[in-house]
């Protein structure tokens, strides 16, 4: 840290960082306390949307004003994290839906698609399975 820091800047950066951390912490506590997987999937997005955004904003403010030039690194990280987290969450949610439907235990909406037959009659008899190219 540097010595001659203006008061308003330190308050602004502090507020952003503390608020962002509080949101992230709430999200991770949600990960522990929420009862089902589909509820828990909402929890980490707090850390990647507003929580992470505020912390990175505080960092960008601090470095831009103390170094006298605009610092973009945080923006790159923010864009990357906010774009990639939904992708991973969607993949994970789809995998979970798939697994839940196979197991058939918990209350999950049924699949849109009709399940493909495992084997046709002819394949059952001959034992030869024709693989479809797709």
């Amino acid at each position: 840290m540097i010595a001659n820091l203006p008061l308003w800047l330190s308050i602004l950066v502090s507020a952003a960082v503390v608020l962002g951390s509080a949101l992230t912490l709430a999200g991770c506590f949600g990960l522990v306390r929420l009862p089902t997987f589909y509820l828990r999937i909402h929890a980490p997005t707090m850390g990647t949307s507003l929580g992470g955004g505020l912390i990175l904003l505080g960092s960008a403010l601090y470095f831009s004003l103390t170094q006298g030039r605009v610092v973009f690194h945080e923006l790159a990280i923010f864009v990357f994290v906010t774009v990639t987290t939904p992708v991973t969450l969607m993949l994970l949610a789809r995998a979970t839906l798939f697994r839940d439907r196979v197991e058939g235990g918990s209350a999950v909406p049924p699949s849109f698609r009709k399940p493909e037959p495992l084997a046709t009659e002819a394949e059952m008899q001959t034992g030869i399975v024709e693989t479809k190219a797709d």
Partner: peptide, 13 residues
């Protein structure tokens, strides 16, 4: 991406 990034909702399928 929008629906999943917003904490209140998640896109599944």
């Amino acid at each position: 991406c929008i629906l999943t990034a917003v904490p209140g909702s998640a896109w599944l399928e």
